[in-house]
Amino acid sequence: MRSGSSDSYSGAGSLADAGGALAGSSVAAPGLHSQPDSPRTTINPNTIDKRRVLIQTIESPVVSYLKFLPYFKMGAAGVESLAGVRKVNVNVSRRRFIKGVITSSAAAATSSAWYSASAKQRPGGVVERLITLNVNGRKRPVDVLPQETLAYTLRYKLGLTGTKLGCNRGECGACTVVVDDVSHYSCSMLTHSVRGRAVATVEGLQDPSGALHPVQQAFIDELAPQCGYCTPGQLMATVALLKDNPKPTREEARQALSGNLCRCGAYDHYLNAVMRASGQATEVEQNA
């Protein structure tokens, strides 16, 4: 263990070093595997199987009973327009729904067998579904694939490119966002898992008047970032920390930010900024 090194919050080596120590990243060679766009199915709302639509109606008052959602050939487009139109008998619809699942599962098994046969071929069975997210306090309706990660939705569907992707494997922290006041790697959570939760990204920190968030201001005042690539993640990890613990010790801050790599090695500067943002002394520990 290289504890005591100032190369990271937690005794990590430099990123070059970490490349090897990220046990296996050299073998597993994480990288962007490109894949073709999946076909977007557009379905005429009038022809959608009403039963399925009702099950998929997430805005309806019976939502908690109807969370049991399959994504079989479900036309995204028509769903919300039909949402809430009908009163649903919860028991009946749920029973029906389970039946629906069992009939559809044969399709899933078939498509998966096909899928395993060739990773390049797509079963084409998965389709986007319209859901409404709460991002930075705003309602954002968006079509989402079942397997879509939050980082992907934010960056490529909502245009919120402040959230960065570094490793896409939960190993760097560049994609850190705050969900219900807790920090998460947005590359490693499904967008469908944040329905009904409050997502905060770096774009939402600034106040509507344009004033910077105190954490952003502290980062600038302490010249925390170097290249800036890890900065949105460091900001969001700090925001989550200060929400939970408004006056952290430097050690607590180090722990809280330890899931965020900085390849420029600006760790101490970031810690100074966290201390400043929490209204505490920053310089004393410099030579400690």
Binding site: L32, K67, F68, L69, P123, P146, Q147, H192
Partner: peptide, 15 residues
């Protein structure tokens, strides 16, 4: 332009 690295896969969210 960009693609998610997640493969196509179904999702069930039972209660």
């Amino acid at each position: 332009a960009a693609h998610d690295v997640m493969p196509d896969i179904e999702l069930f969210q039972p209660i």
